[in-house]
Design a protein around this nucleic acid. Structure first.
Lengths: 184, 184
DNA sequence: GTTGCCATGTAAGGTGTTACATGATTTA
DNA sequence: TAAATCATGTAACACCTTACATGGCAAC
């Protein structure tokens, strides 16, 4: 379970509440997590049952009750184990590719329009991510200098992914445009 | 539902059975589909109930029974609609990024080892995809010349994705190696 | 006094995977 | 005769998302 690894990772810096984790996870673009609660609170219950995290219930003098989680020794070991286990390959999910299966039903104009719209959408996303970077948003302020390099690289990876997709769409648009030379 | 779009797309070329579709879908790397049956046969039932496909049951003189599906007019319209609707952004799922959240618990050596192993894994994947390409595998033999350019581009996109990830891992390895200059 | 943030959780459902189950035909 | 391919389907479960539900505190 990939979210559990991320949670254990974050807890390796400091004890955190579910709410804290939710913010950290949804903040970070490259973790591409929707920000839903269901998953996180259930993952924490699960990790607690497995003895990988400890729960500390704060009875607050002011503000809402918080449950603060921290790594146990077993949790620390489990984190190391999953970091050192055989790496999993990444995957891309691009609905556009599924759409293009049926592209032969489209006129050249429509196909061009679609690829252009896709490129525009991607440009917007890239712009937003670059803007985040400029503001220092989306990059957790946790860990060593080495780790800060890693956070940066993760963010860069997300940007590069969208940029590659944008360039791919532009190239494809050019290729299919060239074939028919304006026919249709 | 992204798989339904792909199915409608394939059916726009010719009537096909569930088995045919299964082969086409799992063949194509960029559609990144596991090849499971559950999904596909249920999707076909679903599309049939919605009136988007027609089912033709072949009573065969030899061989097993086949149910051959073809697009209805409504199906054709639905396909066009989904192609022309607002494009969805792609996503990458990279478990490695989730792992790297906890990278600060690792020594420089271990981190280096992990990134190296990841790069090797990616290299293997890229090699396999390039091999497929050389053999003309993984690219459906369907549609116009324009469409063949699209199939090619889809395959190229998958390769480029893994290659970008491999280069990213190498760069990160170099960056973190530089920071500490061999310390630990 | 209403909006926004802190903080916890649940319900329902969509999407996808692995594995199971069956049986005929073709190829080595 | 054993293995691969053709062909259909089901069961169980993992993962992830949207939306719902509740309540206190802070700021404007």
């Amino acid at each position: 379970m990939t979210i559990e690894v991320a949670i254990l990772g974050f807890l390796s810096y400091a004890p955190l509440s579910g709410y804290d984790l939710k913010k950290l996870l949804s903040q970070s673009e490259s973790l591409h997590w929707s920000g839903n609660n269901n998953q996180i609170y259930r993952a924490l219950v699960d990790l607690h049952e497995k003895g990988l995290v400890e729960r500390d219930e704060e009875a607050p003098s002011a503000g809402p009750a918080r449950k603060v989680y921290s790594l146990t020794e077993a949790g620390d070991a489990a984190l190391r184990d999953s970091l050192l286990s055989a790496p999993e390959l990444p995957e891309m999910r691009t609905p556009m590719l599924a759409r293009l299966v049926g592209a032969d039903t489209l006129s050249n104009e429509d196909l061009d329009r679609i690829l252009t719209a896709y490129g525009d959408e991607l440009r917007g996303k890239i712009w937003a991510l670059e803007e985040m970077e400029r503001r220092g948003d989306g990059i957790p302020d946790l860990g060593s200098e080495r780790q800060r390099v890693i956070w940066q690289a993760m963010h860069q990876r997300a940007i590069a992914f969208y940029r590659a997709e944008m360039e791919w769409a532009a190239t494809l648009r050019w290729s299919v445009g060239k074939i028919v030379g304006g026919a249709d």
